[in-house]
């Protein structure tokens, strides 16, 4: 019995560091696995600060252990006062000032040029409106996925539309609130290509936790090609899907470039087939998932603004899904 308790306690103690270590397994959405310069600076600062805190905590523990064991009167009045002055006043001030001076340069904002790509991201319940605004060219609208060129400075213009959201791509940079009526600007630079993830980090309603997005960092030349293609009207596949999409009034809220659908209430669907997820980072973009979401979005996103279409047959939903999936 005692043995079992001892093993249980040991196991309990081992769990904490193991759980902490598990944080290192996440490659897509982790501030510990940076793919941008800002996040790398933040991770570095975190490591330095935590190491500093551990050293101070250990020194304090050692001092306490010594104080408990030392014979009474060991220091004397003057010695005690000096210890309090040095260990309680001077040392913390110097250490904190040092850490502050060390961390302050990280506050210096990244220099930006007028030619840098701007991406306006608007948080809405419960999805992300994304607009690419390259210098000297018309903007390109997309949604629920952000693509950025590696090695180039990108300006993110962040705003909320209905309530306060918060924009966080842990691997790229720090967290910034999206506040209605106020534009927060963040300058970032990705350092390596890959598929990453961001998440809303300010409670914004029923589906707050289901409001995420994929981030695709791509080599600059590839990004330019992608943006040029994204600008074009969608190439629609053959089939009854398009007619059904328009007949059901989907175009009242959603836009698909090159069709009559020009709604601006919901996410732009122009190149939905090229996206890595649907429903703001929640579902794999399969035809079955799209069809299920079209008929009953509330089953996947409680509180969603999009109405349900229960009257739509499975076959019709499938046809719309095939059409949307084919929009490349």
């Amino acid at each position: 019995m005692v043995m079992r308790q001892a093993i249980g306690m040991l196991r309990g103690r081992a769990t904490v560091p193991l759980l902490l270590a598990l944080a290192g397994c996440n490659q897509q959405q982790s501030a510990l696995v940076p793919f941008g310069e800002e996040a790398a600076v933040l991770r570095h600062l975190t490591v330095v600060m935590v190491a500093g805190a551990v050293v101070i905590a250990l020194a304090l523990a050692a001092l306490m252990a010594w104080a408990v064991r030392a014979p009474e009167g060991r220091l004397g009045l003057r010695g005690g006062e000096r210890l309090i002055l040095v260990a309680g006043g001077v040392l913390p001030t110097v250490l904190l000032l040092g850490l502050l001076a060390y961390s302050l340069p990280a506050m210096r904002p990244r220099a930006v040029a007028p030619a840098d790509l701007r991406i306006a991201v608007t948080g809405e319940q419960f999805w992300w409106r994304v607009q690419y605004e390259p210098a000297g060219a018309a903007p390109v609208t997309s949604a629920n996925e952000i693509r950025i060129p590696v090695g180039r400075t990108v300006l993110l213009h962040l705003e909320g539309r209905d309530v306060v959201h918060s924009f966080w791509i842990p691997g790229l940079a720090g967290k910034t609130d999206m506040i209605p009526g106020r534009r927060n600007v963040m300058a970032v630079r990705a350092t390596r290509a890959g598929l990453f993830r961001g998440q809303c980090t300010e409670f914004c309603g029923l589906s707050h936790a289901l409001m995420a997005f994929d981030v695709v960092a791509m080599p600059a030349a590839e990004f330019d090609r992608w943006l040029a293609a994204e600008r074009q009207p969608a190439v629609a596949p053959a089939g009854a899907g398009k007619a059904l999409f328009l007949a059901n009034g989907c175009g009242g809220c959603h836009a698909i470039r090159g069709t009559g659908a020009a709604g601006a209430i919901g996410p732009d669907l122009s190149h939905l087939g090229g996206r890595t997820t649907i429903a703001a980072g929640m579902l794999r973009p399969t035809e079955a998932n799209i069809a299920a979401f079209v008929r009953h979005p509330e089953r996947f996103k409680p509180g969603v603004r999009m109405p349900a279409f229960p009257q739509m047959s499975e076959a019709e939903a499938r046809a719309i899904a095939r059409y949307l999936k084919g929009l490349k």
Partner: peptide, 9 residues
């Protein structure tokens, strides 16, 4: 921090 801040972002 004022020593290091250089714009309003």
């Amino acid at each position: 921090p004022v020593l290091f801040l250089s714009d309003c972002r």
